[in-house]
């Protein structure tokens, strides 16, 4: 059995990738296990033991990070571990003392307490964790405070969270532009764009299909996708974000087509209208997919991203 592996593989890059992947996998499994352990709320473990274990873990992580140098991959992983320990510690305080605090307070406190470590670690993965904690805190605050008070409606909250993710993306770009090169990992940029557009996609679709949606949903989606398209095609060439925004926009356009066909011809006004509507919709969807291919082909040819995507 003669099998030849690809020879064009960049050995040094993949060696580094494998070491990073091994560290990330080890740390993530260990931390997930710790989160699972305290989520179980084991009765046989006294509150003193729970606090002791978590605080010991926290202290050991920070001290070890300082000893191993914070900028090293191991130091960064240890500071991320310290951040996770902090969140679990706050959750256990809630479990033991039954403080009655809302979940958003836990996440807000968590995001504030770990911020110094996030700044010190100079790690894009740590910043990503912090952004996820912040977005969760904001989303929970909306759900537990703003919605009951009637300040926001359901889909307005979705819009606000989606825009918040895009604001973080803007902050990321400004930081990279200001010279924070260590933050310049491409995956963080693409992931933030995916999260932001993905969240905004929901209220946009709710409006299109009239699931109690509001017009701000579609407006926010259009403005954000257009802005991302403009920025990442002209100012900061990033083809992956162009593909993401174009893909989501095409699906929303397909939904708008379905709604328009429903309003103009109708799917439930007899056999002829049903079949006519479906034929029109098929042509519309095929045309949009073709337009997507044409647009992405043109953009791909025009943009020089400077890296291999395939």
């Amino acid at each position: 059995m003669n099998i030849e592996l690809p020879k064009s593989r960049d050995h040094a890059y993949w060696q580094l990738w494998a070491m990073r992947a091994l560290l990330v996998l080890g740390a993530s499994h260990l931390l997930a296990g710790i989160v699972f352990f305290f989520a179980y709320n084991w009765d046989d473990l006294s509150p003193f033991a729970k606090f002791g274990l978590l605080q010991a873990g926290l202290v050991v992580s920070v001290v070890a990070a300082l000893r191993l140098k914070i900028e090293s991959p191991a130091g960064q992983a240890l500071l991320i571990a310290a951040s996770v320990f902090t969140g679990v510690l706050l959750a256990v305080i809630g479990q033991v003392y039954q403080t009655g605090a809302d979940a958003y307070e836990l996440f807000t406190a968590w995001s504030v307490l770990i911020l110094p470590w996030v700044i010190a670690s100079r790690s894009s993965a740590h910043w990503f964790l912090w952004i996820v904690v912040c977005l969760t805190a904001f989303s929970l605050y909306g759900g537990q405070v703003l919605l009951p008070l009637g300040v926001l409606a359901d889909d307005q909250l979705g819009i606000a969270v989606g825009i918040a993710a895009i604001v973080f993306l803007g902050g990321y770009e400004l930081a990279v532009h200001a010279g924070f090169d260590w933050l310049g990992d491409r995956w963080l940029r693409v992931t933030l764009a995916l999260i932001g557009v993905g969240i905004l996609f929901v209220p946009a679709m709710m409006f299109v299909f009239d699931w109690h949606g509001i017009s701000q949903g579609i407006a926010a989606f259009v403005i954000v996708t257009a802005a991302l398209g403009l920025v990442y095609s002209r100012l900061i060439p990033e083809f992956a974000i162009i593909a993401i925004t174009t893909g989501f926009a095409a699906v929303v356009a397909m939904a708008i087509g379905a709604r328009a066909v429903h309003e103009i011809i109708g799917f439930d006004d007899g056999t002829t209208s049903l079949i006519t509507s479906l034929i029109v919709l098929v042509l519309w969807c095929a045309m949009l997919t073709a337009a997507t291919v044409r647009l992405l082909n043109a953009m791909s040819a025009r943009m020089t991203t400077g890296h291999s995507d395939d």
């Binding site: 080890g26 740390a27 499994h29 296990g33 191991a74």
Partner: peptide, 25 residues
């Protein structure tokens, strides 16, 4: 399996991977 057992399993896997990373490094 219970959340407790799953937690032990994940921690064991994490520890093994971290030891492997340390030796490789």
């Amino acid at each position: 399996m219970s959340l407790l057992n799953k937690s032990f399993l994940l921690m064991a896997v994490g520890a093994i991977l971290l030891v492997a990373w340390w030796l490789a490094e």
